[in-house]
Amino acid sequence: MNITQQIVNAIWLGGVYSLFALGYALVFSVLGVLNLAHSAVFMWGAFIGLVAVTQLNVSVWAAIPLAMVVSGVISIVLDVLAFAPLRRRNAPRISQLISSIGAAILLVNIAQLIFGTQPQRFPLGSIPSDPLEGLPIRITPIQIIILLVAITLMAVLQYLVVRTRAGQAMRAVAFNQRVASLLGINSGNVFRMTFFLAGALAGAAGVLFGLAYNTITPFMGDSVALKGLTVIVLGGLGNIQGAVVGGFVVAALEVFSIAAGGSNYREAFVFTLLFLILLFRPQGLVGQAAETRA
């Protein structure tokens, strides 16, 4: 039971990590910018879902799309306030990074003022949490649901980016903004769309995290911010499949280093792997051409 259960644990945790990393990877792939406020939008998503369920008496299933839309809007506001002015001025990308930190501080503090600091949760029994019976392994319905939603979102995002016109525009802007403008693509719209999508993904991740771990605080983004970064770099920066692969690799490494009795060093293992991957395969596990970005 032990090793099979650990495999289940790793798959589950991998789904959780990839879900968070998707939006992170999307913004990076189009803008080439690390958006450190992504984890703050994620936190807002969780709170919006919570408010929808507890104050507006909406079902959990309706709360997820609602949180996605509102988080998407918050994310656009973030772009308008913190990123767009710097883009317009051709500021170095490192300024955009710091600007996103300022935005994150702001979002967390506003959340603290509105929602307080005490951990909040969805009402017990919002979704079934008893483990499934009759299986050799232990898994709960919420875990299966989150995995399914995560996989669906990944597939939808992949479809959007690869198959649709909007996705083509995004990739064109990602490849070269100037050339894209010459082709008649309004890069401002593409950026806003990217931020909306990334925000919506963060919102969905926020609600699902809230349901899975049932602790919602203004600071819940802190614990996943660095993890998300690790995941997207490991998988290949700016690569959507990369975020998914990275998520599962990090999760597997953590779970199996614990299973092997090394829980003290599991993070050291992850960062060492990261270090080695960067040295020998900087495009990440999935990436193809090495492309320089800042």
Partner: peptide, 14 residues
């Protein structure tokens, strides 16, 4: 585990 961790399944399984 580390501060801020959410998932303890692996440790608990052990």
């Amino acid at each position: 585990f580390a501060k801020g961790d959410l998932d303890f399944n692996a440790q608990l399984t052990n």
